[in-house]
């Protein structure tokens, strides 16, 4: 039997298993996305007898003012900051889960990490609103404990947006890091220690490189949606909550300029893909 025959034999029985997923992807993602790509080149939507033609002006609009570039830059910065905080908070948690806790305790902590996933995003944001505002839960609690009065009013500020987003996305980092950390053989760490490596050296030369695929996967999973996020900035950010994502939302919901909204979305997609492509070699080197 040649290998080609083997391959064909391998794929035919698999077809019924693959078909639903690919059919779903085609219908649910490819069609709407290509419709959106098409909209982004139109002057207007072909609705209610509106005149329309093909144009590049929606893409030109991005470059015509510094507005969108400024916004894109602040959204990318937001994405980087949130990813960094998720790493700082998520990695140690994942390490403890994978290497320190065992049995019941691990299950319990795991549940706590996953919990934010099970609550509705809007509910999470409004809960933060109650906690962060002046006279809110955090403010009241701190003043009840501390001997002096502090005024905590983080609501409607950039830190509030960061807090809300980090809370929403940190589970991704914990989960991806946990998976790679768990795969590290304990005897490797023991061997390194017995050969005289300090704890810091073990972390830097052994654990971090081996966990890198998980860190990278988590970072990508967090960075991409955060750059386009609009709900958290709008509700928690107040007057500082204008980002690239909120402007896209405005185009779709507030001014009904779908073509411009679609064009802005595809520019964002292109920029994110470029960033990922540019960082791929660096990340690959880091993994070696």
């Amino acid at each position: 039997m040649t290998s080609a025959q083997a391959a064909r034999k391998g794929i035919r029985p698999a077809l019924p298993l693959l078909a639903p997923a690919y059919l779903w992807l085609t219908v649910a993602i490819f069609l709407p996305l290509s419709a959106m790509a098409f909209f982004s080149f139109m002057t207007d939507l072909p609705m209610a007898g509106r005149e329309w033609s093909l144009t590049l002006k929606n893409y030109a609009a991005f470059f015509s003012t510094s507005l969108y570039l400024t916004l894109l830059w602040s959204s990318l910065r937001l994405g980087l900051e949130v990813t960094a905080w998720c790493l700082v908070i998520g990695f140690p948690a994942a390490y403890v889960l994978a290497k320190v806790l065992k049995g019941r305790a691990r299950e319990a902590i795991f549940l706590l990490v996953i919990l934010p996933f099970w609550s509705n995003g809007l509910v999470r944001i409004f809960s933060w609103a109650m906690v962060l505002r002046e006279g809110g839960i955090l403010d009241t609690a701190l003043n009840a404990v501390l001997p002096f009065t502090v005024s905590i009013d983080l609501m409607y500020s950039y830190p509030a947006v960061i807090i809300g987003l980090v809370h929403s996305y940190v589970p991704y980092m914990v989960l991806t890091c946990y998976l790679t950390l768990q795969a590290i053989d304990d005897s490797l760490i023991e061997a390194a220690r017995s050969l005289g490596a300090s704890r810091r050296q073990v972390l830097r030369r052994l654990i971090l490189p081996l966990a890198m695929p998980g860190i990278v996967a988590g970072a990508v999973l967090i960075f991409v949606p955060v750059v386009g996020s609009f709900m958290e900035p709008r509700i928690l950010g107040g007057r500082t909550g204008t980002f690239y994502g909120t402007v896209i939302e405005d185009q779709f919901v507030a001014v009904f300029n779908w073509p411009l909204g679609a064009a802005l979305s595809f520019i964002l997609l292109a920029v994110v893909l470029l960033i990922l492509a540019a960082s791929a070699p660096i990340l690959r080197r880091a993994q070696q």
């Binding site: 507005l67 007057r239 204008t242 507030a254 001014v255």
Partner: peptide, 17 residues
């Protein structure tokens, strides 16, 4: 008019940062 108003308003909101 509406589009020009929106442009002014968005600019104001972005420059607040």
């Amino acid at each position: 008019q509406r589009e020009s108003y929106l442009a002014v308003w968005q600019e104001l909101k972005v420059n607040v940062k």
